[in-house]
Nucleic acid binder design. Structure first.
Lengths: 218, 218
DNA sequence: GTATGTGAAGTAATTCACAGCT
DNA sequence: AGCTGTGAATTACTTCACATAC
């Protein structure tokens, strides 16, 4: 089947969010143009993105919001919930443990890991923190396929190796380093400083006016 | 002058980080192929990215690391430091206030704002938290051009409006909502759940094997 | 010989424009 | 008439391939 651009998936997530908002307002029909505008793109883009996965609307009418929403949810694999492990209970890690948005989006961080013995055994926001030595067993016991890395740069590659060995299939990495990893494990990087550097560039060179760049590569 | 793709800027940030690592190792020359491999792309990409901004290397030799690094730093506007304001002292906001990476990358969060009176007046990680009513004056007094939004979805647009009114020129928004904003203000969104949804999609549809997608958007 | 810089070629993503359905 | 779905056209990005410089 056709390869799906990452940007298409990102936009689908956005459409899904916008559709939820519309649903809460009690609206039940939307046109591709409206949905596009609310999502920061245009109607053609919406239609082309959806076309990767089938037909969703009615010509002359638009999209039934509840149906489109549930079909996108399914496409994204967001029917059902995901168990997630988080490694590195520092400032950012702790914040993510209590990040309401994850739970609302059906991601449950159900276990944390750290090398710091003073954290091991404690609970943060109801999530128990275990020692790294217990990682492999815990991951397989609890059916965890996703992990979030919030350890310092120097340990990120090591932790990634341990995670892959433990059977993790998808990693969201916040350490600003290029982790190399087996091809069958999905890796996404979020580099917060890099985002600010992007802003720094555009502030510095107003001549390359490039607003509305977003969404976007994260 | 030519419009610079956002991805080029993202990669420049990555090159900069990799160059720092090489410098620490005492290496002082690098080829585009090496730099590309270490940055998760290839030599041609490196050379083309740099070509937007001039000539940086010596044919038959490669790039002098210290020089390339300092020129990229300048291009990104990362010579000198940036004062940053942070609005929304919740879990994530608090974590970002003490995020070591920002300081190291020359972003100084020098002031925080919240509507919660119990937080106003306190210091978090040495950063004083003020009431929203003081925002406009503080921003102009302290020469702050960048702001980070970590407020709940419902207040994000309002806060963005206040920031723009106060003279902020670049916003990094963590609230999962499409903020609409004057064209001369740069906006970047980071949506943590959206990143996980991308992983969810690829885990669910192994047939669209699309690893090494990263960096990257968002 | 080796590696940069860059037009030319190739690939991918977006937008156009309209046929087809309601 | 209105809006989707989709080939065709366009635009943007990446890779190729080689002339050029050390």
């Amino acid at each position: 089947m056709k390869k799906i651009p990452d940007m298409v998936i990102r936009r689908l997530s956005t459409y899904s969010r916008v559709l939820s908002d519309l649903m809460e307002k009690g609206i039940d029909l939307v046109s591709s143009d409206e949905l596009g505008k609310l999502s920061g793109c245009n109607g053609t883009q919406v239609r082309k993105d959806l076309a990767y996965f089938g037909q969703f609307g009615t010509r002359g009418v638009g999209y039934r919001i509840s149906e489109l929403k549930s079909r996108i949810t399914k496409i994204l694999g967001m029917d059902g919930r995901w168990n997630v492990a988080l490694i590195g209970i520092g400032n950012l890690g702790t914040a993510l443990l209590s990040h309401e948005g994850f739970r609302r989006h059906k991601f449950d961080i159900i276990i944390g890991f750290d090398v710091d013995k003073s954290k091991v055994g404690k609970k943060f926001n109801g999530v128990e923190i275990k020692d790294m030595s217990e990682l492999k067993r815990a991951i397989s016991e609890k059916d965890i396929k996703m992990a979030i890395i919030t350890v310092p740069v120097q340990s990120a590659q090591t932790v990634a190796n341990i995670l892959v060995d433990a059977g993790i299939k998808a990693i969201l990495n916040f350490a600003p380093v290029n982790i190399s990893i087996s091809k069958d494990v999905f890796l996404k990087n979020v580099d917060l400083s890099l985002e600010l550097e992007g802003l720094s560039f555009f502030l510095t060179h107003n001549e390359y006016q490039n607003n509305e760049f977003n969404g976007s590569y994260g």
